Amino acid sequence: MLRTALKVRWIAFLLLVMGAAAAFAWLGQWQLERAIIASQPIDAESETIIPLVELQVPGIAPSEVASGHMTEVTGVLVPDSYTVLTGRLNYGEAGYWLVGRFLAEEGSLPIALGWAADEVTVLAVEDELNAAAEVEPAVVTGRFMPTEAPVVPEGDQGPFVESTLSVASLVNLWPDFTGPVYEGYLVADVAPSGLDVIESIPPMNEGSVNWLNIFYAVEWIVFAGFAFFIWWRLVKDAYERELEEKAQLEAK
């Protein structure tokens, strides 16, 4: 049978089968990759930085696409418009956020600038930022998040203590505030000196395994194996015919 398989006709057919099997294997790998991508929990598209002006409009609730999306915005931090938020977790540790009012061409945007474990550190950084107020516009990059609901301070806290980043509450604290404001805030990916970068969690997909893609991947692998089986079967049939013809000649 080996002599039959080594004939030019069957070697050429084997090369054709190998090409088809390689194509089937590639299609199977592609289907498997699609199934894996569909099961990934992180929304990869949200990690692509898009200018905020293209992502969100001031005064409108953030869309599902805008919420949690990485973005960039150009503007300046407004002096004396900082707010300290209490009870903010950063990698599981409670502490304080420093939030500033960022004035862009389209409107005002709250920015969560950084985190510290104690309030004294946050207040010291606030004083430094107020003393070194920048006039030239700067580009800030971070994750855009929807506004949080306001929370009434507990009994032992002062009336102006803030624990959530509520845009509706912040605009009442900003001095001389006018103009449009974004219904969300930015978690800056670079913190001022003295503060830690705030943990920024990407939005999560439901991440379910696409069994249909897996079925197709297995199907293409079966096709690749079946192509080799057809070649082997045809060679075997040709070999058996040769044996029959040889037996008939010897019988004569």
Rank of each mutant, 00 (worst) to 15 (best):
Leu77Ser: 06
Ile221Ala: 14
Ser208Asp: 14
Val120Leu: 13
Val125Arg: 08
Leu6Phe: 11
Leu103Val: 12
Ile111His: 03
Glu126Asp: 11
Pro41Ala: 06
Ser200Tyr: 02
Ser81Thr: 15
Ala138Ser: 12
Trp115Glu: 07
Ala25Thr: 12
Leu212Asp: 11
Pro51Lys: 04
Val152Lys: 05
Glu72Leu: 12
Asn172Leu: 11
Gly75Met: 05
Ile37Tyr: 11
Ile221Ser: 05
Asp127Leu: 12
Arg88Thr: 00
Val76Gln: 11
Asp43Ile: 10
Gly92Leu: 06
Glu148Tyr: 05
Leu85Gln: 01
Arg88Phe: 07
Gly100Ile: 13
Asp189Leu: 05
Thr141Gly: 00
Ala25Trp: 02
Gly68His: 06
Val78Glu: 11
Ala22Phe: 06
Glu219His: 09
Glu162Thr: 12
Val65Lys: 04
Ala217His: 00
Glu33Tyr: 07
Phe228Arg: 03
Gln31Phe: 00
Pro137Asn: 03
Met18Asn: 01
Thr83Met: 08
Leu109Lys: 08
Glu45Trp: 00
Ala104Ile: 13
Gly100Pro: 14
Val125Lys: 08
Met145Val: 11
Leu123Gly: 00
Ala23Ile: 05
Ile201Phe: 08
Ala104Thr: 15
Leu123Lys: 14
Glu136Asp: 14
Phe160Arg: 09
His69Pro: 00
Ser193Ile: 09
Pro41Lys: 15
Glu54Thr: 07
Ala227Ser: 15
Ala168Gly: 02
Val190Gln: 10
Tyr82Thr: 04
Trp97Cys: 08
Ile198Cys: 10
Ser208Trp: 02
Ile198Met: 13
Pro159Met: 10
Gly19Ile: 03
Met1Tyr: 09
Pro202Glu: 06
Pro62Glu: 02
Gly225Met: 15
Ser208Lys: 12
Gly19Cys: 10
Arg101Thr: 06
Ala20Val: 14
Glu45Val: 03
Val73Ser: 11
Trp211Met: 08
Phe177Lys: 00
Ile111Pro: 00
Glu47Val: 06
Leu52Asn: 13
